[in-house]
Design a protein around this nucleic acid. Sequence first.
DNA 1: ACTATGGTTCCATTTTTCGGAACAGCCATG
DNA 2: CATGGCTGTTCCGAAAAATGGAACCATAGT
Lengths: 256, 256
Amino acid sequence: MTTLSTAGQVLRCFSARRQELTVTEVAELLSLPKSNVSRLLRAMREAGFLESVPDSRGYRPGILMFELGNTYRRDSALVARAHAAVGRVSRDFGHTGYVSIRDGADVIGLTFHEGSRMLRVGTPVGQRLPAFAAATGRALLARLPDEEVARLHPGPLAPPSPNAPQGMDELMQRLEAVRRDGYALAIDESNPGVGSIAVAVGNAAGSEDACLCIVYPLALVDDAERDRMIAALLAEAREIHTRPGATVTARSAAAA
Amino acid sequence: MTTLSTAGQVLRCFSARRQELTVTEVAELLSLPKSNVSRLLRAMREAGFLESVPDSRGYRPGILMFELGNTYRRDSALVARAHAAVGRVSRDFGHTGYVSIRDGADVIGLTFHEGSRMLRVGTPVGQRLPAFAAATGRALLARLPDEEVARLHPGPLAPPSPNAPQGMDELMQRLEAVRRDGYALAIDESNPGVGSIAVAVGNAAGSEDACLCIVYPLALVDDAERDRMIAALLAEAREIHTRPGATVTARSAAAA
DNA sequence: ACTATGGTTCCATTTTTCGGAACAGCCATG
DNA sequence: CATGGCTGTTCCGAAAAATGGAACCATAGT
């Protein structure tokens, strides 16, 4: 295995739950000799990928990773417009909204607008979730042909809750509904008490797409309100598609 | 030069203004043969560091960088507490607040709370600024001995505005004032019309420290209000120092 | 002092990398 | 439809780096 790909593997060992790793931990996780890992982690630190945790033997991702992560695709024209669009809906209804993208069989939150209500849903930015079990994920999966979806899920599904699709058949049915309706819904699915509405935007051909999403506490939203939010998201998505030229710089979208 | 450090250099070529790079651009920026860069960028893509931009020859940082950047030190006990403290001050006064850290002679914004006023200052998260020319930077530099500050600035200072320190002498004087007062001020310095108040927290010994900061439109804040904000920040910093055990999980700090 | 644990260094062998040059793909232009 | 300019890729032997087992250090706990 080449150094670079091993370094990639090392970085993948970090997560929200594993923010700090030692030589031995990495060696065990990747089944590599300690001598190797020892040198590799040091080299990665010299190169800026990692930094040593003060008063500890551990390593953690370096500031370089933070800087890079911060510009990730936020300035892509599509994501910037999606961010602005979600912001309008989030503001109008007071619930948290975010933009997410798909990476293989997962979805990841890219940007968010925090809701203004006392009771609101937290921020899932940077968190990786199985796409099939999230509204955003199904909105994005629905743009792929069935065989591609199947290819992305070689093993049996591991539904995190009873309201998530329990198998490929159910997933395919729900994707069909998303294609018909133009939006995806997840009620009480990954998170109890939480509902999400998701609408995909962008070029479905895989070149670049993203997903608008509003998440809300089920206790605060009745069916009528939910339908209004769906309509608002669909309208924003239509606006993005019908006027693809209208650029929004990330700066103006992020500023007040 | 080893592959890993070259890869680090490549990543450093990206910035908010350069979100996408081609083989030729990297080759010129780093003075490397194109053959090398061609293979390296491909290897970096295979390893997850980069991704190809659709419908373009360019590369951009990969989603792996985004995921790593998102957990960067946000869950460090100190940063989490600082974030919560800044949040209180930001909410009470309505101005934008953020937490930043020092990296060599630069400062970088880590987390922020957006202000609630119509007129407010934007979000500098992930942006790298020369420490000597920012309130946050001077608050953190002031914790170092003079010779260390000098070591960090081998060349002559390049002040970005007339209100920034114009030379090492003036910088040292202003750092002395920061040490005396316990806070740093920057008025109309890096950004016209903007004032900032910064207070450092954490273990000055370099092991881990961070900086609380409030930024505000000068038009909205008179001297009395500014003094109240200074007092509020100093009180929060004192609280953090006098009760070092009180932990705040990042989750509860980030959640609603 | 002794041991357990985690981390580093050493060294010969194996595997990559290096960089110049030749080559291939893609447009625009003549 | 050639031509030239530009960008990116492949090829090759020489040079350098990574590998992994074992021996070696450092630290904390008994």
